[in-house]
């Protein structure tokens, strides 16, 4: 059974909150991850993506490849916000 977007978004929000020492309620789907007004620095972002890689493998049964050049060509849209990353991970699940 696939995991819902809401559940994946909750995971991403909690992970970002933990990495940035914020309350989870202060992080929402519009919270920016890259570009102006981002709340994570490069080290936090790397750790978020490593965590997401494991989460995707273990909970979603899919592969989240963020280290290849092709993945990075989409990174700007995928990593724009908590919501866009959660949507991308959710959609990686096998049909």
């Amino acid at each position: 059974m696939s995991v819902s977007y809401d559940e994946v978004e909750k995971y991403v929000r909690e992970e970002v909150a933990s990495l940035t020492n914020r309350d989870a309620t202060a992080v929402g789907p519009e919270t920016v991850l890259v570009g102006t007004n981002r709340i994570v620095d490069s080290a936090d972002l790397v750790m978020l993506l490593l965590s997401a890689e494991e989460y995707t493998r273990e909970k979603l049964g899919a592969v989240f490849d963020w280290t290849s050049d092709s993945a990075m060509s989409e990174a700007r849209s995928v990593l724009r916000s908590v919501g866009s990353l959660a949507r991308h991970l959710t959609d990686l699940q096998p049909a």
Partner: peptide
């Protein structure tokens, strides 16, 4: 170290 496209290595 492991190569990545964000910080070069992590």
């Amino acid at each position: 170290g492991v190569a990545n496209p964000i910080t070069g290595q992590h």
